[in-house]
């Protein structure tokens, strides 16, 4: 079994309306130090596999095809546990 965390974030430079709205609200609530907020997705996947390399390639492919929208998003894969 291989467990992986995948972080999907908006590409640098792509407008993040959610982040902007949350950032403004945090400032209004008195958190003056807030410079920037970017909101992304966190996805956990468990794979029935014992080959971390193959799993990595597979996760890469999954992220590229489905989990992230390459037009506007980047992703980062973190393999956290395998046994």
């Amino acid at each position: 079994m291989i467990r992986a965390n995948i972080y999907v974030t908006l590409k640098k430079g792509v407008l993040d309306p959610q982040g902007e709205a949350v950032s403004r609200s945090l400032q209004v609530m008195g958190y003056q130090g807030v410079q920037e907020v970017r909101i992304g997705k966190f996805i956990q996947i468990v794979l029935d596999s014992d080959d971390p390399e193959a799993a990595g390639r597979q996760l890469e492919e999954m992220s590229d095809k489905l989990l992230a929208n390459p037009v506007i998003e980047d992703f980062r894969i973190e393999i956290v546990a395998g046994e």
Partner: peptide
Amino acid sequence: KRPSVQVGDPFM
């Protein structure tokens, strides 16, 4: 040419 796609913010 993908970077030229804009993202909309309906709230704004």
